[in-house]
Nucleic acid binder design. Structure first.
Lengths: 334, 334
DNA sequence: CTCTATTGTAAAAGCGTTTTCGCAAAAAAG
DNA sequence: CTTTTTTGCGAAAACGCTTTTACAATAGAG
């Protein structure tokens, strides 16, 4: 099971191992004849350079850490796919790390990534406290936050324009004739959620609507929490013709609750989501939503990080992408 | 941005670096006093051992390759989550690699993993040809297939009992009174799919039913392909009261087609899936299905691989797990 | 025909660890 | 007190590679 090394190749070719190294790295200081001969021998012997040894001397592992709450989450897994593709296209591999939304584990993972000498990390934070909790690491490890807007934080991030997303959403519902729009799942803490509810409030103000909130008191956003919250909401008899859910997962929860209570969407009320996770496009779901451009998010994230890594840039970059409205069938004209 | 090394710590502590190493590794050949002093200095200097350097001498990277068609696939991302958790609990990290169902890329990834000196790889194969295509690598890199039954192949795999799964499914539908059960999405090639259709056929035979197939002529199984195939099927006026879809994604495609054509599930026909992907439990989907126990699959896969790695076992292991029926509301009594 | 460029290759240094070996000093035994 | 054993630690080798430096051999210039 032991691997063939550059020395074995050198011996077989009857040259020194520096010559083999040159042959492989495309150095000009070698004759085409020797190079050809060596390359043939490499192939024949199934020689694969030891990346670990190379990393040591090059002081670069060509490895990126991807730290996220949970890869089993449609939004994150979609994003991860694109991140991996993008990274590999640029010669990097990804080490996958699930923090399970645990701020302590997240910190441990950073420590681990430093030990592993990754060239940088792409972070989907475990929670709003992540930025503060991890701050000591940022100077030791190039980092870029993805999907989370950190406002004016002193670290790189790429995110969608959450404020504009909800603003657009309200405008859309307004155009469909809705005047009583409820914002579902407003949360404290996460700046992303703060911006989303601010965008909603601003649009209401500009259009002369009265903002109406249903606050999420649960520790996170998931189908289950959305469902439980919706159960509470739907017995309250509040007046609304449309619900703007803070995330698609929340919207899915609402759907489930509505279903159970015999309410039809969009007949009884329109429902608008945010994120455009895969599930939202599913046959009987057909949720109209504000899309986060995940492929772009991934691509910009990798680009931003590598720019930092390769040019040894100090400082940080903030990139805010524009969301798009995806019209499906959960909103109707009134 | 340069990291502090063991030498820096040694200098600060006024000892040789072998002493520092001993202090950290818990060697008994060091006095408790010196150890304490050194550990304090390590903490103070934010020293994190360089795993790459350690890997070189230990000849183990504590890294596992995870090669799969696409992490953006509910089944695979769920599985990956558990694989990562399990691996990390045992001191390993995961390098994520998407093959995009491309047999050629898959091979390149193996090459890459060998270069990176991973201790082993967990493989969700890109296709039925994967086993043959990758065979040359298996002797160089401990590998375990997951989710795919390779029958009597000479390599480790852990999979669900696909034959038994469909067999159980048919029995269930039979108990609900169905006598005309159509198997949707039979495919060539993949042994998993072969076993599933065989299980279906065997159950039909044993129960005195006539097997009825709708073959999948598309290159893979996805919602879109399922949808297209279902469109063809539903105009054919074949007689059936239940459809057994070869995968949940296929079932989702059928739902979409049925929806469009004004057919109701389970009123117009019952629908049974296989896999129990996350989507199947979603509010308005509620697909009854045969579950693959993903957490168990992940756990057994990691265990099997590490056993091989750590004990330097030659040979292979086949582990077949039992599936469970998850009853939701896409099947009705007739 | 000697002197200097140019070219192809070999040898050595270094990357950050772990581990083996050996040497002192301290402790135990005689 | 001397001799032997233990204990704590330093020096150095090894891991597989890249890069730099040094050195031949060949070719071109004077």
């Amino acid at each position: 099971m032991k691997n063939v090394t550059i020395k074995d190749v050198a011996k077989a070719a009857g040259v020194s191992y520096s010559t083999v190294s040159r042959a492989l790295s495309g150095s000009p200081e070698i004759s085409e004849e020797t190079r050809g001969r060596i390359l043939d021998i490499c192939k024949e012997m199934h020689y694969t350079p030891n990346t670990v040894a190379r990393s040591m001397v090059m002081k670069s592992t060509k490895l990126l850490g991807l730290i996220l709450p949970g890869i089993n989450n449609p939004f994150m897994s979609e994003l991860s796919y694109h991140i991996d593709r993008q990274a590999r296209a640029r010669g990097y591999n990804i080490i996958l790390c699930n923090s399970s939304r645990d701020i302590e584990q997240e910190r441990e993972l950073f420590e681990l990534m430093i030990g592993r000498q990754v060239d940088g990390v792409i972070l989907l934070p475990a929670g709003p406290e992540s930025y503060d909790s991890l701050q000591p690491f940022f100077s030791r490890l190039p980092t870029v936050f993805v999907g989370e807007n950190l406002r004016d934080a002193q670290e790189s991030y790429v995110s969608v324009d959450n404020f504009r997303g909800t603003y657009m959403g309200v405008e859309y519902l307004y155009r469909l004739g809705h005047r009583d729009i409820l914002y579902f799942g407003k949360r404290q803490g996460s700046i992303t959620h703060q911006l989303r509810s601010e965008g909603y409030a601003a649009a209401c103000q500009d259009l002369g609507l009265t903002p109406q909130f249903c606050n999420n008191t649960f520790p996170g956003t998931s189908i289950k929490y959305g469902y439980q919250l919706a159960k509470q909401l739907l017995v309250q008899e509040r007046r609304f013709t449309a619900v703007f859910a803070s995330t698609d997962t929340n919207a899915l929860g609402i759907m489930q609750a509505a279903e159970e209570m015999g309410l039809k969407i969009p007949q009884d009320f329109s429902l608008l989501g945010f994120d455009n996770i895969r599930d939202s496009g599913l046959p009987r779901i057909e949720l109209t939503t504000i899309e986060q451009p995940m492929k772009m998010l991934a691509s910009v994230a990798v680009h931003t990080l590598l720019e930092k890594v390769q040019n040894e840039l100090a400082g940080y970059t903030h990139r805010i992408l524009t969301p798009t409205l995806i019209e499906r069938s959960s909103c109707r004209q009134v």
